[in-house]
Structure formats: C-alpha cells, structure tokens
Amino acid sequence: MKKFILFIGGLIALFILLANLGPMVILALSVWLLYVCFKKFVQTDSTAAKVGWVIVGLIVLSISFSNIYAVIGVAAAYALYLIYKNWNTSESSEVQVREDDDPFTNFEKEWAELNK
C-alpha cells in the first residue's frame, strides 16, 4: 500500500513538474540575468551606465516575479526526490539491537547467560 501511495504521489509530482518546466527555465534564466545585471552595475563607474543597469535589472526583476509560481515546480521536484529516496525503505520499523561487549550496556543479556 505504501508503494502505491508513493507511486501516485510521484506521478502527481511529475505532472506538476512537467507543467511548470517552462516557467522554471525562465525563472532560472531571469535570476541569472539579475546576477549579471548586479555584477555589471557594481563594475561600472558611469552614472548613466548605472541608471541603465538599474532599468535593465528592474525589467528582468518583473520577469522573475511573473514566473514566481515556478517555485511550485521546484517543490514538485523536491517531492520527487523524497519519493525516490523513500521508495526502497522497509515498511516495518524494526529496532536494531546493538551488540556490545560492555556488560553494563547489555546487563539483561549477561544476567540471562549467568542464570543458564
């Protein structure tokens, strides 16, 4: 049952990711262009060039804000990652007992061996 639910969740996340793939690419491109505009703004010494880079940066920022719903696609990609990671985990939560030679941590085991 767990694998069926993971499969259905993964299928839904995959469809959401594919639907938002275009806006995700445009968002990534606009964030990169914002970085380039900022670097050029910092490097230039001319006031007119700084004003020009600010105007270009604001235009690119408006493109970024128009594709902000692409974050849903990023969340779907993260959900797919979590589903892939949890696909092969066992359904039963078994507690593993650690074997030590220290008699103080395994007192019950030592007592049972002494009473035999």
Results as ranks from 00 to 15, higher is better:
residue 1 M to G: 12
residue 2 K to F: 13
residue 3 K to Y: 15
residue 4 F to C: 12
residue 4 F to P: 05
residue 4 F to D: 11
residue 6 L to V: 09
residue 8 I to M: 14
residue 8 I to A: 14
residue 9 G to A: 12
residue 11 L to W: 10
residue 13 A to G: 13
residue 13 A to L: 10
residue 14 L to K: 08
residue 14 L to T: 13
residue 15 F to E: 05
residue 15 F to R: 08
residue 16 I to H: 03
residue 16 I to Y: 05
residue 16 I to S: 11
residue 17 L to R: 05
residue 17 L to P: 01
residue 17 L to N: 07
residue 19 A to L: 10
residue 20 N to W: 06
residue 20 N to S: 08
residue 22 G to T: 13
residue 22 G to D: 05
residue 22 G to H: 06
residue 24 M to D: 06
residue 27 L to C: 05
residue 28 A to N: 08
residue 28 A to H: 07
residue 29 L to I: 10
residue 30 S to P: 05
residue 36 V to R: 11
residue 37 C to G: 03
residue 37 C to Y: 04
residue 37 C to E: 01
residue 37 C to A: 01
residue 38 F to Q: 04
residue 39 K to L: 05
residue 40 K to T: 08
residue 41 F to D: 00
residue 41 F to G: 03
residue 42 V to S: 06
residue 42 V to P: 00
residue 42 V to F: 06
residue 43 Q to D: 08
residue 43 Q to P: 03
residue 44 T to Q: 02
residue 46 S to Q: 04
residue 48 A to D: 10
residue 48 A to K: 09
residue 49 A to H: 07
residue 49 A to E: 06
residue 51 V to W: 04
residue 52 G to V: 01
residue 53 W to N: 00
residue 55 I to A: 05
residue 57 G to S: 00
residue 58 L to I: 00
residue 59 I to T: 02
residue 59 I to F: 07
residue 60 V to M: 05
residue 60 V to S: 04
residue 61 L to Q: 04
residue 62 S to P: 04
residue 64 S to K: 02
residue 64 S to M: 14
residue 65 F to P: 03
residue 65 F to T: 06
residue 68 I to C: 02
residue 69 Y to M: 01
residue 71 V to P: 01
residue 72 I to P: 09
residue 72 I to T: 10
residue 73 G to N: 00
residue 74 V to K: 05
residue 74 V to M: 04
residue 74 V to F: 09
residue 75 A to H: 04
residue 75 A to R: 09
residue 77 A to W: 06
residue 78 Y to R: 12
residue 80 L to N: 01
residue 81 Y to A: 09
residue 82 L to T: 11
residue 83 I to K: 01
residue 84 Y to M: 09
residue 84 Y to N: 14
residue 88 N to R: 08
residue 89 T to C: 15
residue 89 T to K: 14
residue 89 T to A: 12
residue 90 S to A: 11
residue 90 S to M: 15
residue 90 S to V: 15
residue 91 E to Y: 11
residue 91 E to C: 12
residue 93 S to L: 09
residue 96 Q to A: 14
residue 96 Q to V: 15
residue 97 V to E: 10
residue 98 R to A: 14
residue 98 R to T: 15
residue 98 R to W: 15
residue 99 E to C: 14
residue 100 D to G: 08
residue 100 D to Y: 12
residue 100 D to I: 13
residue 101 D to Y: 03
residue 101 D to M: 02
residue 101 D to Q: 03
residue 101 D to E: 03
residue 102 D to C: 01
residue 102 D to A: 04
residue 103 P to C: 07
residue 104 F to A: 14
residue 104 F to R: 11
residue 105 T to K: 15
residue 105 T to Y: 11
residue 105 T to N: 12
residue 105 T to D: 13
residue 107 F to I: 15
residue 108 E to C: 04
residue 108 E to K: 06
residue 108 E to W: 09
residue 109 K to P: 03
residue 109 K to A: 15
residue 109 K to G: 08
residue 110 E to N: 07
residue 110 E to V: 14
residue 111 W to G: 02
residue 111 W to V: 08
residue 112 A to W: 10
residue 113 E to Y: 12
residue 114 L to F: 13
residue 115 N to E: 07
residue 115 N to I: 05
